[in-house]
Amino acid sequence: MITENRASNSGKNLLYSVVPNVKSKLLAKIVVGGMFAAFPIALALPADALQVKINPSNPKLGDTLSVFINVDNSGSGANPKVTTGNKSYPAFEIAPNQYRAFIPTTPLEKPGTRTIRVSGDGKVRNLAVLVQNRKFPVQRITLPPGKAGVKATEYELKRVAEFKALQTPKKYWNGMFGKPNAGRITTIYGVRRYYNGKFANDYYHRGIDYAGAAGSPVVAPAAGRVALVGTVSQGFRVHGNVVGIDHGQGVTSIFMHLSRINVKEGDFVQPGKLIGTVGSTGASTGPHLHWGLYVNGQSVDPVPWRYQEFK
């Protein structure tokens, strides 16, 4: 649900709830004698108002929010600014006078209403978006001796952090993302875990696991540039042999625990391009592929990206 707070001429507050896909019709809820009265009204935004649309209309934790912004004049050269809380998210031009920003949500956040502030073309809009709760399964993992308590190296953490922070201005992907491996999904996004009997408070499964057979192909789910290649011999103790693809505009994919790597940093890959094979390197209990999708540095659920187009 997306709402906007505005002040009426009488000084009282009105809460307008935007009716999906109808720009000029709004639903007014007015306090009358301590009760809410609700009725549809035809209320057009001022002609010079900043036009903002947010998808999905009913987001839940783990979703990627798309903020679409239309401006009257982009001649100023400055892209619109999108903020929520104390975080800012880049807006990229996707058509003349139209911009889009992505806002990630994660299982570690609290559900509830958050305000998204959009400023551009000399105007400001504040929209309240209700992010719904989502229940995530709990899994108990027992790591064998030698892998229990394995910690990432400083080099590994640095390289992966730099990769996830990429915000390349160019958009490389086009359309929906494909499957990186033909195996069945064994662990979904967002699962909370106990490791050897101890609950990991700040952990959630940051991606999807595919039970591909050892040596089975791992392919690029979407176009992008290979921006990370790491191996166990280089110190990637947790990720194992890993490949990271920069899809552009703050969207990145990481592929972990590979047995073989078939690309090098700087390569440009198209959807379906072989990038490696399934293995069990790093912190892994058996052969599988871990695919993580990151938006502006945060792990989001990859599933929506497979079944709908993020423009």
Score class of each variant (00 low, 15 high):
G183L: 12
R192V: 10
M256V: 00
R184V: 01
K264M: 12
L228A: 12
H239W: 01
V232H: 03
R193M: 11
T186N: 13
S253W: 02
G276F: 08
V191Q: 08
K273Q: 14
G178E: 10
R225T: 14
V218W: 00
L143C: 07
A213M: 10
V229G: 01
L274R: 14
G212F: 00
D209A: 08
L157C: 04
N262D: 06
A223Q: 10
T277G: 07
F255W: 05
A152L: 04
L274E: 13
Y203S: 14
V278M: 10
G146P: 08
A283M: 15
V243L: 08
K171N: 14
R184I: 01
I208T: 06
A220D: 03
G215Y: 10
K158S: 14
I254Q: 00
G276E: 02
Q139A: 13
T281W: 03
G197Q: 00
T277M: 10
T186F: 06
G149H: 11
G178I: 09
Q249V: 07
R237F: 14
H205Q: 11
H247K: 10
A214R: 15
N174I: 03
G175D: 01
A214M: 13
R206E: 14
P217R: 08
P271I: 12
Y194W: 04
A161E: 14
G248M: 12
T231W: 04
A220Y: 02
K158H: 13
N262G: 03
A200S: 13
A214Y: 14
T186Q: 08
E265Y: 04
G266I: 05
A152Y: 00
I208F: 00
S216M: 10
V226H: 00
A182Q: 14
F163D: 01
G183C: 06
I208D: 03
G250D: 02
G178N: 12
E156V: 13
V229W: 00
K147C: 08
V232E: 15
A214F: 13
Y155M: 11
I261F: 07
A182F: 04
G146N: 05
V232N: 00
I245D: 01
K171E: 12
F199K: 09
T168S: 15
K151Y: 07
A214Q: 14
F177P: 01
R225V: 13
E162R: 14
F199T: 05
V269M: 10
V219T: 15
A165E: 07
H205V: 11
T285H: 09
G266R: 01
P217S: 12
A200R: 13
P169M: 10
F177K: 00
G282P: 02
T187P: 04
I185F: 07
A165V: 11
L274G: 07
D209W: 08
F255D: 02
G266D: 04
K273E: 10
N262M: 06
Y194R: 00
I188G: 07
A211G: 04
S216Q: 07
L143D: 12
H257S: 11
G224K: 06
G286Y: 02
T187C: 09
Q249H: 03
G266F: 05
T153H: 05
H247I: 10
K273P: 00
K164F: 09
H247P: 01
S259H: 11
A222F: 02
R159H: 09
V242E: 01
Y210C: 04
N181D: 15
K158T: 08
K264E: 07
R260E: 15
M256E: 02
F199Q: 09
A211P: 02
H257A: 12
R225W: 05
Q249F: 11
A211Y: 11
G279I: 07
V263T: 02
G250R: 06
